[in-house]
Design a protein around this nucleic acid. Structure first.
Length: 818
RNA sequence: GCCCGGGUGGCGGAAUUGGUAGACGCUGCGGACUUAAAAUCCGUUUUCCGUAAGGAAGUGUGGGUUCAAGUCCCACCCCGGGCACCA
């Protein structure tokens, strides 16, 4: 072998070998132990950034590790190719989104290959191609038939200057990012998928998904937000129709001092016709961004409508207000307010001088940390007061009694409610999957028949930033009605790009099927290991779970949950902030690959932090990773120049040789556990570095010792091969193997090498470290405690004191309490 | 505002079930090699006191439980992710 490590040459050689032998292309081999390892596919934004390199490397390490465990591993790759950045780039550079996207894909695929990822490229999926998106169009028409999609008005951010709908991201401080105009809330008809039909299943299965991080399961559980409550009807004075509100706290019903409706509510709109001040306020409520974070943090404002409603139990009249934080689109567009026991209601009541009536008190009298002049008391651990016949009842008792009373009266109904809302999939954008619907004046909304699919998106159109170019493309819009044949209009909205990313994992199993998926899906699904950014913990992962169930329920799959194990990896930071073009703190992975080689970049990514945590970028750290690989190269070179020494080391090992063997097998055990169970790849690498340091210090005496060193080097190369596969490829050959390391199995632990003759015991007095000692491995507890008490330094702390207690933790420590 | 994470030396991080705080790497400092530099190698690096042996303090802040707390409990501060049209 060469005496110097030349990453460019060996990486190109290893990649050529993998490509020529097609080692990563897999078929559906019956009887094999399949392992489907999947990375969240990237958006083709231009070139790979460090976040990509990190997630791709983590995934590749797992895929290669599982392969060495003897599993039949599928690791595919593809492109989440529709989305807004292509439109923005098209406007900026005056080109078509498709050209920009395909050029980016070609470039990024080359970068991935240079990094040596073990992908089966024969299964590549690109979501902006008609042969992909036709099947989600097909599924949408199936769901239309099943009543699982519907069309309804919903709110968007409207830029009144650019005359276009803005994404939340495009609203900066309440203004359009290009025009600077104040953004308005506007309602337009949009398509929805009934994810709420699946809310219970999506919720309940979380309890059994123990391959997922608990934080993600908790986030999804809270997002779905199942609650049990009551719909309550309040009669409106002067109106025939009652106003219905939903509450989870019917026990506080006697504390209602006002109700509030949304600005778009018919009662508010009607009241404003002869009230200019109110009309102006309703107008003002429209001028706001629509994101929840914005609505929750904006100043709360309201106005009385001059209308009273009637309390359903007491008959008392309470005022009806309009408030900017009540949303028409969620629930009934109206809420009841209990300022004494809800913090937002409390703040609103204080601001406008509305009464605050306490109706819940701690068990055993009033007082006790309650000061309604300072805040609401929101605990459910109390009993009703000032609540007529319900006084003294606890939460559960009052809930049941009040619900009964209202139901008997026809003024209330128990209802399970979800925070989760149906998924609005319409986007007023060009670069996306056309929604396969045709509008006919006579037949209404008609799904495109299966034989007419796909509805192909015309590529190459110019984007201007003022609405989708599809709306003005007559040959796209004008089409006969599939039902009656008369002239009709095609839907020009496209799907939310989360639709494409909700089923691509299934398409990889059968990328050329003339159906959404075929039987190969049954071989590969579910995904055994899914890896991606924690920022996808809720939306993408919930939509993908939903789609899996949709595909199951149209008969395409037998699988309930798509991802058995989930690893959410942290971001790549520089100077404490996420690396991003906006912040101008990016480091281009390509320059590092050019300078140090792919293995060094991969090693640094894996070593610098545990996968789940944020990773702080460090140029010096990359140099350190490179140095380590050079040292390993030199260690192998030194060894093979003396002699390649295969075979198991014999009994004639020196003590140092025995010690090296023990270190070798301890390291194999630790690295195996770190990768498979703990998924702390950084500590796995640290353990291999320790072994390499031990090899460097080791001076062999005789054949047996050299065999021990050979064994240690072989273990090092195998344990590191998932992380630095190119270097491993070369070093494995140098160590005398003719078969490539890609086909080598993971090393096994030899338990007999792990035995120790003695052990170190830590000595404590009153829990403080006072010394250490070595004792024979088979020493009795009595002998160890006696030796501990006799220790010179321990004596200084126990002399002339009484030992009250002796704690012995076997094999670890003795603590004397005096 | 709400939900979920995180906070440990000069820096990234380690400490797996309540049992040795700082593994491994980086940086810095000292040395070897070299005409010189780079590269490489060796030593050292939590802080304070001490020549040393050793001692004291120490894991965001303040309390608590325990023989023993980075780890468990309570309260708080700060940072990050998500909040339904960024992907």
């Amino acid at each position: 072998m060469d005496s110097t490590y030349d990453p460019d040459r060996i990486e190109s050689e290893a990649q050529t070998y993998w490509r020529e032998h097609r080692v990563f292309e897999v078929d559906e081999k019956e009887g094999a132990d399949k392992f489907y390892c999947l990375t969240m596919f990237p958006y083709p934004s231009g070139k790979l950034h460090m976040g990509h390199v990190r997630v791709l490397t983590i995934s590749d390490v797992l895929a290669r590790f599982q392969r060495m465990q003897g599993r039949h591993v599928l690791q595919p790759m593809g492109w989440d190719a529709f989305g807004m950045p292509a439109e923005n780039a098209a406007i900026k550079n005056d080109l078509a989104p498709s050209d920009w996207t395909y050029a980016n894909i070609a470039h990024m695929r080359g970068q991935m290959d240079r990094l040596g990822f073990a992908y089966d490229w024969s299964r590549e999926v690109t979501t902006c191609k008609p042969e992909y998106y036709r099947w989600e169009q097909w599924l949408f028409t199936k769901l239309f038939e099943k009543g699982l999609v519907y069309r309804q008005n919903s709110v968007v951010n409207w830029d009144p200057v650019d005359q276009t709908v803005l994404a939340n991201e495009q609203v900066i401080d309440g203004r359009g990012w290009r025009s600077g105009a104040l953004v308005e809330r506007r309602e337009i008809p949009q398509w929805f998928m009934r994810i709420t039909e699946y809310a219970d299943e999506l919720l309940e299965e979380l309890d059994t998904m123990d391959g997922w991080p608990t934080s993600v399961r908790t986030m999804q559980r809270n997002w779905i937000g199942r609650s049990e409550g009551i719909d309550i009807d309040f009669d409106v004075v002067g109106h025939d129709e009652p106003l219905t509100v939903y509450t989870t706290r019917p026990d506080t019903l006697y504390g209602v001092t006002y109700l509030a409706v949304a600005a778009e509510h018919p009662l508010a709109v009607a009241a404003a016709t002869d009230n200019p001040a109110l009309a102006e306020f309703l107008e003002e409520c429209q001028q706001t961004a629509s994101s929840e974070a914005h609505l929750e943090t904006m100043p709360k404002k309201g106005m009385p409508l001059g209308i009273d409603v009637v309390h359903p139990l007491t008959g008392a009249r309470v005022p009806l207000w309009v408030a900017n934080f009540v949303l028409m689109a969620y629930g009934t567009g109206a809420v009841m307010a209990v300022p004494a026991h809800d913090q937002r209601d409390w703040e609103f009541a204080r601001q406008y001088g509305l009464p605050i009536t306490q109706v819940i008190a701690p068990v055993g009298g009033q007082g006790d940390g309650i000061d309604l002049d300072r805040s609401a008391w929101t605990s459910k651990d109390g009993v009703c007061v000032n609540s007529g016949p319900y006084d003294g009842l606890d939460f559960a008792g009052a809930f049941a009694a009040i619900a009964d009373a209202l139901e008997k009266d026809g003024r209330g109904r128990k209802r399970v409610n979800y925070r989760l809302r149906d998924w609005g999939v319409s986007r007023q954008r060009y670069w996306g999957t056309p929604i396969p619907i045709i509008y006919c004046d006579d037949c209404g909304a008609v799904p495109v028949p299966e034989g007419d699919l796909p509805v192909v998106l015309p590529e190459g159109l110019k984007v201007t930033g003022a609405g989708s170019p599809l709306t003005t493309l007559d040959e796209f819009v004008n089409t006969p009605c599939p039902k009656c044949g008369r002239p009709a209009r095609r839907e020009t909205d496209t799907f939310d790009t989360f639709v494409e990313s909700s089923w691509y994992f299934a398409r990889y199993t059968s990328p050329d099927a003339m159906a959404m998926v075929d039987d190969r899906e049954k071989y590969w699904m579910p995904v055994d290991q899914y890896i991606g950014g924690v920022e996808h913990a809720i939306l993408h992962l919930l939509y993908a779970r939903f789609f899996q169930k949709l595909m199951r329920d149209v008969g395409l799959s037998d699988v309930d949950e798509p991802f058995t194990r989930l690893l959410t990896q942290g971001m790549v930071l520089k100077d404490g902030a996420k690396m991003s073009k906006n912040k101008g703190n990016t480091v281009d992975p390509q320059t590092l690959v050019d300078r140090y080689g792919a293995d060094t970049v991969r090693l640094f990514m894996i070593f610098a932090a545990p996968p789940e945590q944020a990773l702080e970028w460090s140029d010096d750290g990359v140099a350190g990773a490179s140095r380590f690989l050079k040292r390993l190269w030199t260690a192998v070179d030194t060894h093979v120049n003396e002699s390649v020494q295969s075979g198991r080391p014999s009994e004639t090992l020196s003590d140092a040789g025995k010690s090296l063997r023990r270190k070798t097998h301890e390291t194999i055990a630790k690295v195996s556990d770190d990768i498979e169970r703990r998924m702390t790849f950084n500590t796995a690498v640290a353990a291999v570095m320790e072994l390499t340091n031990a090899i460097g210090k080791f001076e062999p005496h005789g054949q047996a010792d050299r065999a021990a060193r050979q064994e240690a080097l072989e273990a090092t190369v195998l344990l590191l091969s998932p992380v630095v596969p190119h270097l491993a490829h070369t070093l494995w050959a140098a160590l005398g193997y003719t078969e490539a390391v890609i086909d080598a199995p993971w090393p096994a632990v030899d338990d007999s090498a792990l035995t120790r003759d003695d052990m170190e015991i830590v000595l404590q007095v009153n829990g403080k470290l006072r010394g250490r000692m070595n004792v024979p491995a088979d020493a009795s507890k009595e002998a160890i405690v006696a030796a501990a008490e006799a220790d010179e330094n321990v004596q200084r702390f126990i002399a002339e004191k009484v030992i009250r207690k002796t704690i012995y933790v076997p094999g670890k420590l003795v603590n004397l309490v005096v």
